[in-house]
Amino acid sequence: MVKLTALSLRPSLARRAAVAAAGAAALAGLATVATPGSAYADDGQSPATAQPVAQFGDCPALPPGVDPARWRCEVHTAAPRLTMGKVSVTLAPITMTHAEGPMPDGTNGQVWGAMHAAPTAVPGGLTGTAAGDQVRQLRLAITPEYGGRSDFYTGQFSLRFRLVSPLLPRDCTIGASAPVDFQLKRSGPSQWLSQDPPLIAFSAYDDTFAAPAAEGCGPLTGLLNRRLGLPAPSGNLMTYDATYTFRMYDRLPATS
């Protein structure tokens, strides 16, 4: 799997401005809920529908001096439901990989591996109207990206959200300067779905995070933030239903 990036084909600034002016009156419209299968493919092909598969190719190298038999590589997959500002979507499935285990001094250790995600269409696109879904130039998608901080012992992690549209620059991102920080709280106990191979399900949520404004979006930055209801210091929600599997490092296949 590879991370999807923003469109490389964009119209001239004049054309952007013309389209923006045509839809400006509707930019404050609210979005409805999207489903994981409605991802807006930024390559011009059909919407992405592939589900990520748990694999161990992203397992990171271990810290020096630790015991591989006591460290495990975890791969977890989730399709989070996100309400942020005026946008409510069910994100296309994301996969995260990390390692955890005891350090030589007995403290808990973690090493980040990788994150893979696909874009999810934002209903109503740039305008929040039917035209935003029907006119390709007005479509809008959101793609979560790793924000550089994670602590899977405590449920803390950070994300950035790249905004993808033919009318937006590549770097248009929510959380560009400082990522969105989540502190997930468990909704209930974990459930073992399988012992061999191990497969554990859990649910968590965060209703306390603040959503910053989008940045790097060119001439449409102000209109886009009003359309999305950003920044949103409160009233946001991430619900996170996930499954994860793991393998001890001494049981991982040897790499060449």
Rank of each mutant, 00 (worst) to 15 (best):
V2G: 14
L13T: 12
A14G: 09
R16T: 15
R16Q: 15
A17N: 08
A21P: 00
A22W: 12
A24H: 06
L27G: 14
A28W: 08
A31P: 07
G37C: 06
G37P: 01
S38F: 08
A39I: 10
A41L: 08
P47F: 10
A50Y: 02
Q51F: 10
Q51A: 09
P52Y: 01
V53P: 00
D58P: 09
A69P: 01
R72E: 10
A78F: 07
P80A: 06
L82P: 07
V87Y: 02
T90C: 05
T90V: 14
T97A: 07
P102N: 02
V111R: 11
W112S: 07
A114K: 11
V122D: 01
V122A: 02
L126E: 00
G128P: 02
L140E: 04
P144V: 15
G148I: 12
T154K: 03
F157A: 12
F157N: 06
S158G: 08
L163I: 04
L168F: 07
I174F: 02
F182D: 01
K185Q: 15
S190K: 13
Q191G: 03
L199G: 00
S203M: 11
F209I: 09
A210M: 04
G218Q: 05
A232G: 03
Y240K: 03
Y240H: 07
F246M: 08
M248K: 08
L252T: 05
A254H: 09
S256F: 14
